[in-house]
Amino acid sequence: MLTEVLIVGVMVGAIYSLVTIGYSMVYGILKLMNFAHGDVYIFGTLVCYTLLAKFHLNPFLAVLAAAVSGGLLAALVELIAYRRLRAAQHRMISMITALGAAYVIQNSSELRWGNQVLSFPSLFPNQSVVFFGIQISVTHIFTLCVAVVVIVGFNLFLKYHKAGKAILCVSEDIPTSSLMGIPINRTISVVYFLGGVFGVLGGVLYSASYNAISISMGFRGTIIAFTAAVIGGIGSLGGALIGGMILGLSENLISVYVSSSYKDPITFLILISILLIRPTGILGSTESGKV
C-alpha cells in the first residue's frame, strides 16, 4: 500500500515539477509572479484534448502541437501584457496585468470548452507491470520517464546550449547581459515559450493519468506552481524539482492516510513550517541587502 502511494506521489511530484519549472524560471529572470501560468497550460492541455478526442490525431503529434500552442500563448502574453511594463516600474503592476491576462485566457477557454470536467483520453496503454511484487501502471512509468527526460534535457540545454546560457546570464543580471550583447527580449520570449511548453506537458500528463481536465484547474495550477517554487526556493531548477516532489508526495500521503478534504490545509501548513524554518525555501539563497 505504502509503496504504491509513494509511486503515485513521485509521479504527481514529477508532473508538478514540470509545471513549476516554467513558473520558477520566469520568476528567476523577471521577479514576476506569473499569475497567467496555470491558465496558459490549461489552455494547451485543452487544445491537446480537442486534437485527441475530436480529431483523433496521433498522440505524439497532438501533445507536440498542444505544447507549442501553449508556449506561443505564453510568449504572446509576455509580449502584450508584460513587456511594456518591464522597465522601471513597480513589479506588482505586471503582477496585476498577469492576473488580467489570466482572466482573459480563462474566460476565452471557458467560452470554447465550457467549465465542466471533460474526460481526457489515456495516452498510454491501460496496463500494469509487476516489479518485485509491486504493481505499477504503465501510465505512471511513462509519465515519470517523460518528466525525467524533459527535466534532464532542459538542464543540459541550460548548461551547454548558447540560448540556455543566455537564459542563465539574463537571470543573473539583465543590464549586464544586455551590455554583453545578449538579446534580452528574445531570451525572455524563449523563457516564456519554454515555460508554457513544460506547463502544457505537465498538464497533459496529469490529465492523462487522471482522465480529467477542467478550466478550474488553471488557477489551482498557478498556486501549486507558486507553492512548489517557494518550498524549493524560487528561481532555482533544483528547487522546482524538490518543491514539486514534496508537494506531490505530501498530497498523496495525506489524502490516503488522513483525509482528502484536509489535503490542502495540511499542504499549506507544511509550506508555512518550511518557510518559518528556512525563509527562502530549501535551496534558496539568502539575499543580503545592498547599500
Binding site: A81, G100, A101, A102, V104, N107, S108
Partner: peptide
C-alpha cells in the same frame, strides 16, 4: 464578464 474585466485591467 471576466474577459472584459481582464481586458480593462491590462
Amino acid at each position: 464578464r471576466m474577459l472584459i474585466i481582464g481586458v480593462i485591467m491590462v
